[in-house]
């Protein structure tokens, strides 16, 4: 994919961390967040602080993340509903009796879900899609995965190109592409779009084979990642994991 949907080009230290390091760090960080006991409010504060620090190093504004985080909206709904539908002892919040357990569960989803989305967005904002696949390739993702993912990213361009061509062809012939119209036409045309893209995709696949493609990107041997870069790239995850360890320590 030439321009990732969420990728923000940049040359910050965060952008430059090798993708395999970033992937592992992101997974470790989210796992640390999820494993943190929900009553350890302070730990989530530390996690958020770590995420903010990474953003400032990456040079991506907070507002950008805030707008993208709405993908999580359905879960906010769940978090809001839980206090009302859960069982167990009740507490009063603003004069309304809600389930104490539900309240905590709601908070849990809200805090962990939000942090999870923010961490994943950080990864997406600072890593090119194809580097993500390269990172997975270096982390020994199975061959089938790398093959499908590589073709998938290539084909997203093909599909976008087909959509653009179809749209231009329609406008030039007097169609009025208002958004709703377009959504309807796209829904109806999904099968056609699929076919057009597939036939082009077949040719693209042939062209790749013709140049000796063997299912993965010819990345060459990965430049060895020094211990220092692993530590630097992994440090945010390390802080989050420490917060988890302290919070989860049986006292």
């Amino acid at each position: 994919m030439s321009g990732g949907v969420l990728y923000r080009p940049g040359d910050s230290p965060v952008h430059r961390i090798p993708p395999q390091v970033k992937l592992l760090a992101a997974f470790a960080a989210v796992l640390g967040v999820v494993a943190t006991p929900r009553e350890a409010f302070w730990a989530f504060g530390i996690d958020l602080f770590v995420v903010l620090a990474v953003w400032s190093v990456a040079g991506v504004p907070v507002g950008w993340f805030a707008r993208r985080a709405v993908i999580e909206a359905p879960f906010v709904l769940l978090a809001v509903v839980l206090p009302f539908v859960s069982g167990g002892p009740r507490v009063d919040v603003l004069g309304v009796a809600v389930s104490q357990d539900g309240l905590l569960a709601g908070w849990n989803i809200l805090a962990k879900g939000t942090l999870g989305v923010l961490i994943a967005l950080t990864l997406a904002a600072t890593t090119q899609p194809r580097d993500l696949v390269l990172g997975l390739q270096r982390l020994r993702a199975p061959a089938w995965f790398v093959t499908i993912a590589t073709l998938m990213l290539r084909y997203v361009d093909v599909i976008a190109g087909e959509l653009r061509r179809t749209r231009i062809a329609r406008i030039s012939r007097g169609d009025d592409p208002r958004f709703l119209w377009q959504a309807g036409a796209v829904a109806r045309g999904a099968g056609t779009l699929f076919l057009r893209s597939y036939e082009r995709g077949e040719r693209v696949h042939r062209a790749m084979l013709a140049r000796g493609w063997a299912g993965h990107m010819p990345a060459g041997p990965a430049a060895p990642v020094g211990a220092l870069r692993w530590v630097a790239g992994g440090s945010p995850a390390l802080v989050i994991a420490t917060a988890w360890a302290v919070a989860a320590w049986p006292v």
Binding site: L151, A183, L193, F194, Y198, G201, H205
Partner: peptide
């Protein structure tokens, strides 16, 4: 089996891309 040389590879890749692209058209 996903064989690089075979038709399943582009078909699976294209379907994956297609589902991915369709996600941008939420309704």
């Amino acid at each position: 089996r996903i064989d690089v040389d075979d038709r399943t590879a582009p078909l699976a890749g294209l379907l994956a891309a297609f589902l991915f692209a369709m996600q941008l058209l939420n309704f």
